[in-house]
């Protein structure tokens, strides 16, 4: 996906920090929401629809739709409700394994 532009005119942002998603290093202003940072970085697919397997990304941006769910420190959390911080490790969710017989 193309990167989403950060509005520049008259805007100053916090210093940039580096974080990691699935091993990819990305930079974003400290304190930017992870959802916005991923959009700005052009990360299209944040997860796959759990039943249809199709790519999904941020949709509501207010923490309700759950489409931006990622894993940080072992917890599943909405990317639109997390702020980027230096060294943050983010993993995208993996598809479910089927139940063992």
């Amino acid at each position: 996906m193309q990167h989403r532009p950060r509005i520049q005119k008259g805007v100053s942002r916090a210093a940039t920090v580096r974080f990691v998603i699935d091993g990819i290093e990305l930079d974003a202003p400290a304190g930017e929401s992870l959802a916005a940072a991923l959009m700005a970085a052009g990360i299209g697919t944040i997860r796959h629809g759990p039943m249809d397997g199709q790519p999904r990304s941020v949709f509501c941006l207010i923490g309700l739709c759950q489409e931006c769910l990622v894993e940080i420190d072992g917890m599943q959390i909405e990317a639109c409700r997390v702020n980027v911080s230096a060294g943050m490790q983010v993993n995208r969710l993996r598809p479910m394994d089927p139940i063992k017989p």
């Binding site: 193309q2 989403r4 950060r6 509005i7 959009m39 790519p55 990304s57 949709f59 941006l61 207010i62």
Partner: peptide, 25 residues
Amino acid sequence: WTLPGVIGLGAATALMKEQLVLPGN
């Protein structure tokens, strides 16, 4: 509507007001 890149209208207001990021090019 489930494709990445589709967001709500309200979502767009939140993105622009809070993060100062545009929904697309």
